[in-house]
Structures are given as C-alpha cells and as structure tokens.
C-alpha cells in the first residue's frame, strides 16, 4: 500500500507541476509550487517507510520548513518589491502606495 500511496502522490505532484507550468498568473504558479512542495514532503515520508529507513524523515522535516520559507520569501517580494506580476497584469497599483 506504500507503493499505491506513493504512486498517487506522484500523480498529484504531476498535476501540481502541470498547474505550475500552465499558470496563468504568477500566483497560480506559487500556489502550485507550494502544493508540489507539500506533496514532496509526503512522498519522502512515505518513501522513508517504504524503504524502512525512517531517519530520512529528517529531510521531510527540513522540506516542510524550507518550502514555507521559500513561499514566504516569494510573497514578501510580491508584496513589498513592486512586484505585481501576474502574467496578465492589468492592475495599476503604484509603487509605494499605502496598503
């Protein structure tokens, strides 16, 4: 059943990857990357049990944190760095405009 579970997770990763590739907005991509990261964490956790080496779980643990840091860094930039870059950008928020 580990095998079935990891296959299903791989399928989900593929779906998330497809969304990350197709966009259409940058936010879709970030969200898909985030989901892909979560699924990678789960895949590694399942794989640790599949191969019986549970010390690999440390890596899943690190991922769970790193993935979050990456997403927050991306968003920090989106929010503060005048980074209104949905690919079909049509807003007109000016730099330095108060939130």
């Amino acid at each position: 059943m580990y095998i079935a579970a990891s296959l299903a997770i791989l399928v989900t990763m593929g779906l998330a990857l497809a969304r990350a590739l197709s966009g259409p907005t940058t936010y879709d991509r970030i969200a898909a990357v985030n989901m892909h990261g979560t699924k990678t964490v789960l895949l590694i956790a399942v794989f640790a049990f599949l191969s019986g080496r549970t010390d690999v779980l440390d890596i899943a643990l690190v991922y769970a944190l790193i993935n979050f840091i990456g997403v927050v860094a991306a968003l920090k930039l989106v929010e503060h760095g005048n980074f209104h870059t949905s690919d079909n950008y049509d807003g007109d928020v000016k730099e330095g405009e108060p939130k």
Binding site: T25, Y27, V78, E79, T85, S86, G91, V93, K99
Partner: peptide, 8 residues
Amino acid sequence: YAAQHSGL
C-alpha cells in the same frame, strides 16, 4: 492577500 493587493 498578495494576489488581491496586486489587483487580481
């Protein structure tokens, strides 16, 4: 929040 802030 970021998406809404940027006008999506």
